[in-house]
């Protein structure tokens, strides 16, 4: 049952060098640089996003992910979910409005997989970048690189995904859209949605807590994915794999690394989900095809390289 969580709102990514990271997220991926805050964090967004920012880069000694935030319908929903998170047993912390520039009060909570998440109801709405609110044109001039349209989802690795999936489904009202089951019926991957998308967040079982596999950004077409691949070669960027298609979600994709080793994805297409849909199941025995639909063979690096 949906509980008023609308969409992924932001991800704070740790990088070894903010200036180098901006070359990746702004110049290569085409995110819009919004501003820098007093802590030196850089704020960015995809051009189609109406809220002020969706990506925050923080310079740190260890790459990875600090937290992912989800936007909820309103403050009443935020209050209700705050109470339910406490009741469920999460460690919950309230982050005051303005700690992230332009973002309202955030409710931060931990999870069995070791990741930190947040909910928030309010963020300054600056509108789609470069477009008028009335009679908007198809796209704005002046976009760079891959022209990534929005922060779409992230894939997170950690222990006890059963626990985090339970938290997201029971408390936050996400639905299980896709899954990977092993022969004993254990779920080793779960793709959750709060919308019609095949995933708003995904989890894969792994002994090490709190790991980021990738942060993903949406492109409109397969041609755009191929163009992204061209740019990766032109700029001599560290490629992971692709362009290819996934079996899971059927998205068309390419993976590459930012200058601190955090994995990025740009993708297009993919399945849709309605609340009456049964989860789509892939068998762990066919994991090669589930992940890389064309090669049908697993790639060790894709499975084990995490930040």
């Amino acid at each position: 049952m949906r509980k008023g969580v609308m969409r992924p709102g932001h991800i704070q990514i740790r990088v070894l060098d903010v200036e180098e990271a901006l070359k990746h997220y702004r110049d290569l991926m085409g995110l819009i640089e919004v501003e820098r805050d007093s802590q030196g964090r850089a704020y960015l967004k995809g051009w189609t996003e109406v809220d002020k920012f969706s990506v925050v880069l923080r310079q740190a000694d260890e790459p990875g992910m600090d937290f992912v935030g989800y936007k909820v319908l309103d403050n009443q929903t935020l209050e209700k979910l705050h109470g339910e998170l406490v009741e469920y047993g999460c460690n919950v912390e309230e982050i005051p409005a303005g700690e992230l520039n332009g973002c309202g009060r955030r409710i931060r909570f931990d999870s069995p997989t070791g990741h930190m998440f947040e909910l928030f109801a309010e963020k300054e709405q600056t509108g789609k970048w470069g477009l008028s609110k009335v009679n908007p044109e198809a796209w704005p001039r002046g976009l760079t690189g891959m022209k990534a349209t929005r922060f779409d989802h992230c894939l997170l690795y950690g222990p006890n995904i059963a626990g985090t999936l339970d938290l997201f489904q029971k408390v936050l009202g996400f639905e299980l859209a896709e899954q990977v089951l092993d022969p004993e019926g254990t779920r080793i991957a779960g793709f959750l949605t709060a919308s019609m998308k095949a995933h708003d967040v995904a989890f894969i079982e792994c002994p090490e807590p709190g790991k980021l596999h990738h942060a993903s950004f949406f492109l409109d077409t397969w041609e755009d994915v191929l163009r992204a691949a061209d740019l990766i070669s032109m700029e001599d960027v560290s490629l992971d794999i692709g362009p290819t298609r996934h079996g899971l979600t059927h998205g068309k994709t390419i993976y590459f690394f930012d200058p601190s080793g955090n994995r990025s994805e740009v993708f297009c297409g993919g399945d849709y989900h309605y609340p009456d849909h049964e989860p789509v199941t892939w068998k762990a025995e066919d994991l090669g095809k589930a992940i890389f639909y064309h090669d049908r063979v697993l790639n060790e690096r894709f499975l084990t390289v995490l930040t």
Binding site: I188, E205, A284, G288, L303
Partner: peptide, 16 residues
């Protein structure tokens, strides 16, 4: 020192 993932152990090696 790779931290063996469940995933890698049980399935990647099998698939390989």
């Amino acid at each position: 020192q790779p931290r063996e993932s469940y995933y890698t152990n049980r399935d990647a090696r099998k698939a390989a």
